[in-house]
Structure formats: structure tokens, C-alpha cells
Design a protein around this nucleic acid. Structure first.
Lengths: 300, 300
DNA sequence: CATCACCTGTGCATTATTGCACATATTATC
DNA sequence: GATAATATGTGCAATAATGCACAGGTGATG
């Protein structure tokens, strides 16, 4: 059978998707790792081939036409299949060589994980480990990363893994702040909390909010700079010089430290050894994570 | 967000599919319209990029590996989406220009349709009509053809269209055979019928099977060459010189002449005008198709 | 208003891809 | 056994695709 049906270049659809998402040839090019002029040319070629304009060119980017809108869902489903193929291939890989991508929240990476990586490298010299600590979303289905260390109370259902350790928090302040404090306490809160957090209501009912922040690494810096008290993960507070913990009881967090990967990659040798390595590394940091070696403020 | 996930060239998957189907680079190349060396190179490139062998090379072709088997379904689903995009684009085309592919069984094309096409060309000079009369399967979902004239009793559910006329059959023989016939009749049957057809049982119970064939065009040639009687569509028997019809009653066929196209193409201007043209062309040939101008054998 | 950051698009040199001609091997046919 | 048909694969020239440098435009900021 001879199939002479008209065919477009399927790879142009990859460019099409990137442009739909980014709405600019420049950003799309960065997204998929090509020059922006290549994006523009591939889209023009696609438009010419199918005889339909897909984007309106504007000074600040590209706007999808209705034809592009109609195509988008189909292209997206092609991508899903391409990603499934990727995972299929990678998932059967029994080699302890090649690229492996690990994503960890940056503050956890800095304080808990990075010090363990030289050991992983020594154990598996042929694995090219890439550590991704961006604060943005990482898509494991798209294999932007192969393993994630996540601090969460509920991991996504499409990932498999386990909770290695629970997270523990403490109230931390600088010794100088704690010595000089009089009157209502200054508290440093996580941004987005409209209501007063439980720990404030229970232990510091008269507190004044000094600062709201959205990142624990910057919060601990503010604590260290005598701005007030903050509820922090123990791995943060106990690894920061110039900060001490208060001996107050807190309701334990439901959050935990999870090691996760995509179910399709469970047979990949690299993923397996890295996962096991992480289990052990986290266990070795158990006391830090659980706050069992906190330095408590004792009034001096 | 920067997406640095590993990417393969999606278009290579088109080559992959062709090779899975054809099992030879030569045939796959013909199938998708490229040189066989291009197929081989693209597959080698894909294998290199994903680090997995997909095919075993053999003297008479390529054999899929397990990895290729695992990929096949995903690639097939990508193709379905690409085809849907194709129909999406084509389906919105309001122009009376460009390519239009019409598929008709070859004997019906020769006897009923071809004589009408000059008129279509005069009416729509900018439409590039391609007539496909291959006896193989034509996939309208893949836009191997845009319109089909089909002789059937039950068209596929994914196509839309209408039955323009019923099919009518007659019993035909050559005048010479009919004049000289003595004793049991020789009958020429359609291949595959284990049991005696109804028309034979009813009108020629003592008949001898002279020949079994699988194509009405060759059957009518055998009839013309005095080999016996055959039940033929009227448009075949009545358009063949040297053949006459017997005046015997037959159970009317449930088959009909259908004009069909894919539902996605209902808005395409070219498809619409061609469909309407076919309705009219078939109506103009009504007497031929319904056997209303048969030349009956009268004993002379 | 000037500057900067970001955008799209053009031209050119470099790199990658493709078709063609050819070689070799295998199988089927006479 | 000779021939024809079909297969995979290599080398080379022609063609296509790509990145880079540059140009011009727009909007935000100081």
C-alpha cells in the first residue's frame, strides 16, 4: 500500500507547541534550545505547508489564530505520546552511565543534599548527575527531571516514591533578639497567611508581625538579623549560625521529605541507585531534619 | 520556565512508523515519498539519539526489536493526532483550488465516472482532481483520499455520505454462448462462495462452475469470451459490447452506490462541490446503473 | 528624552540532510 | 548456473536548515 497522504513535518509541531506556550519566538527558542530565528522560520514553513496562518505577528510576540487554537489540543496529545516514548526508552535503561536529573528545593539542597553528592559521584562515577534547584515547577512526566526530593504533605498521584522522614519545625530567634526582647514578640510569617498561625496564637498571643516572606532561606536570614521569631524547618534553623531554637511545643507538621520519580522509570538503573542513595543520605541527616541536635536558647 | 527535557525529533517517528509497517527501508521510503537511504539514516539517527536499537537489520529487511514494539503504540497515537490536525486544517478550507483526491473502484470508475470528469474539470478548473482507482484499501482518515465512491451495503461508520442509487445485477452471457448452449449451463462465479449462489440454484440448478474469479471486470471478459453465464452489476454487463442479459428475475441486491467522505471534511469547499457533482453524475447514469437499458437476449 | 530590555525579521556562512549513483548480498526464477 | 529482482549500505554533490550578526521597532524605566 502506497500512502501518499499529505504530510507535515511532525517536528514542526514541537515548535508550534513551544510558541503557543511562550507566545514569543525568542522565549520559545530558549525553551526548546534553538535560535529564535529557527522558531520563526519553522513556523513560517509550517504555515506555508498547510496553507493556513497560525499566528499573528505583533511587536511584542505572536498571537494564536483560531486555526492554531483548533490544532493545539491535537499537538498536545502528540507531545504526551512523545513523552511516553521518552519514558519508555529511558525506563528500560539498565546502565549506570549517562545523564540523571535530580530536582530538590534549593534550601533543602544547600543544607541537606549537596554535602552528600561527592559520595554519590565517587560511588557512580559514570553517572552524570544534574542537580536542578530552580524554584519553579519541574515536570517529571516530561523528564525535565528523573527524581525529585519534595517537601510535601501530599505528593502527586502520577509519581511513585516514599516518605523517608517527617518534617519537624521549631521556633527560632537570634540570641541577641531573644536577650533584648521586651513586650510583644516580633514574628516573621510565611506570606499568604491571613489568619494568625497556631504557634503565634498559642505561644505569642500579643505578637506583632514584623515581616512576611515567601521563602524559608530568606526568613532565616531575617531571624539571624535580629528581626524576630520565625517557625522554621529544623534543617534550616539548626544549620544556620547565629540562630537558636526556643523550647516550645509545636503541633507536628503533616509534611514529610519524599523521594519521588515517575512510575515509568522504576526499572531504570540510574534512577534506582540514586533513589537508594537518597534514602540513605536522608537517614544520615535524620537528626538534623528531626531537630534532634537543636541548639536551644537558655537565657544567657 | 525552561524545558530542557531530552527531545527526539518527532518527525523521525513518522519514519519509524513507516518502517514498522513495511519492514523494509525500500518500501518505507516509497510509502512516505523519500529515498530508502534517508529512511535508513533517519532510523540510525533516532537509534543513536535514544541510545536504543530499534531494528535488527537483515538481508531482506528490518525486524523490530522489543523496544520498537514498546514504542509502536505511542507512535501510532501520535499519527492519529497528526491526521486529525490534517483534517482540521483541510476541513476549514473554503477555496475551490488545490488538490482533491477521489477514490473509486476501478471498474466503476472506467464505466461510470471517468466520462463525467471532463465536465468537473470545466466547472472547477482550479481544483486539481486526483482519481485513485487502486484496488487496495484507501484510508480516508489519513486523507489518502477525500471522497470515496463505494459500492457497499454498509459503509464505515466514521464516514458520512449518502446512497445515491441502489445497485442492480443481471445475468449475462455472450450471444454465441447463449445460442449454442445445450445441457447444463456453465456459470462463472465470484470467488469465495462455497455454497451455490441463489441465482444459480433458482434458475440453473444443474449448472457447472466454469470459473471462479474475484473481479467483475475480468468476469465480464470471460463472459464475452463465451465461457458461460455470470451475475454482474448492470453497469458492467450493459456497458460491455458482445454481452447480453437474460430476462430472469433476481432478488434485488442490498448494495448501493455511496458517495462518502470523512466527517471532518464536511466544510471543505472542494469536497462539497465534488460530492454534489458526483450526485448529479450518478443520477445521469441512473439507467445504466439500474439496468434500464439492458440489451436482452431474444433467442436470435 | 535617553536608555535598556525585549521583540520580530533579513542576510550570510556554516552545518546538516537528502537524493543519486554505485556496490554488495540474498532470494527467486528460468 | 545465470539472470533478475529486491534488499541494505557508502560516498559525494546538491540542497535545505541553522546559528550568528545585525537592523529596526516597541514598551518600560529613570
Amino acid at each position: 500500500m502506497c500512502n501518499n497522504a499529505q504530510v507535515m513535518n511532525w517536528d514542526d509541531l514541537r515548535f508550534f507547541l513551544a510558541l503557543c506556550r511562550e507566545r514569543s519566538a525568542s522565549r520559545a527558542g530558549k525553551s526548546i534550545g534553538v535560535n529564535h530565528t529557527t522558531v520563526a522560520r519553522r513556523i513560517s514553513a509550517l504555515e506555508k505547508e498547510i496553507g493556513t496562518r497560525l499566528f499573528d505577528r505583533q511587536p511584542n510576540g505572536y498571537a494564536m489564530t483560531q486555526a492554531a487554537e483548533n490544532m493545539y489540543g491535537h499537538a498536545l496529545r502528540m507531545e504526551e505520546q512523545a513523552q511516553a516514548i521518552d519514558r519508555e526508552i529511558f525506563g528500560q535503561d539498565a546502565e549506570l552511565t549517562g545523564l540523571l536529573k535530580l530536582t530538590v528545593a534549593h534550601d533543602f539542597a544547600e543544607r541537606v543534599i549537596v554535602s552528600r553528592l561527592p559520595q554519590f559521584q565517587a560511588d557512580y562515577p559514570c553517572i552524570d548527575l544534574q542537580l536542578l534547584t530552580t524554584t519553579g515547577l519541574i515536570d517529571l512526566a516530561a523528564r525535565e527531571a528523573d527524581i525529585a526530593v519534595r517537601l510535601t504533605n501530599k505528593p502527586p498521584e502520577y509519581l511513585v516514591g516514599r516518605k523517608v522522614l517527617p518534617m519537624r519545625h521549631g521556633i527560632y530567634g537570634s540570641p541577641r533578639y531573644l536577650r533584648s526582647a521586651e513586650g510583644p514578640a516580633n514574628v516573621i510569617l510565611f506570606r499568604g497567611g491571613d489568619v494568625q498561625p497556631e504557634w503565634v496564637a498559642e505561644h505569642f498571643p500579643k505578637a506583632v508581625t514584623a515581616l512576611e516572606m515567601d521563602d524559608v532561606s530568606t526568613m532565616v536570614k531575617a531571624v539571624r538579623n535580629h528581626m524576630g521569631l520565625a517557625r522554621l524547618p529544623c534543617y534550616v534553623g539548626d544549620s544556620e549560625p547565629g540562630v537558636q531554637r526556643l523550647d516550645v511545643r509545636l503541633t507536628p507538621s503533616t509534611w514529610g521529605v519524599w523521594v519521588l520519580s515517575h512510575v515509568d522509570l522504576r526499572s531504570t538503573a540510574r534512577v534506582r541507585v540514586c533513589r537508594e542513595f537518597l534514602f540513605e543520605a536522608l537517614e544520615q541527616q535524620r537528626e538534623l531534619i528531626l531537630g534532634e541536635r537543636s541548639s536551644y536558647y537558655n537565657g544567657a
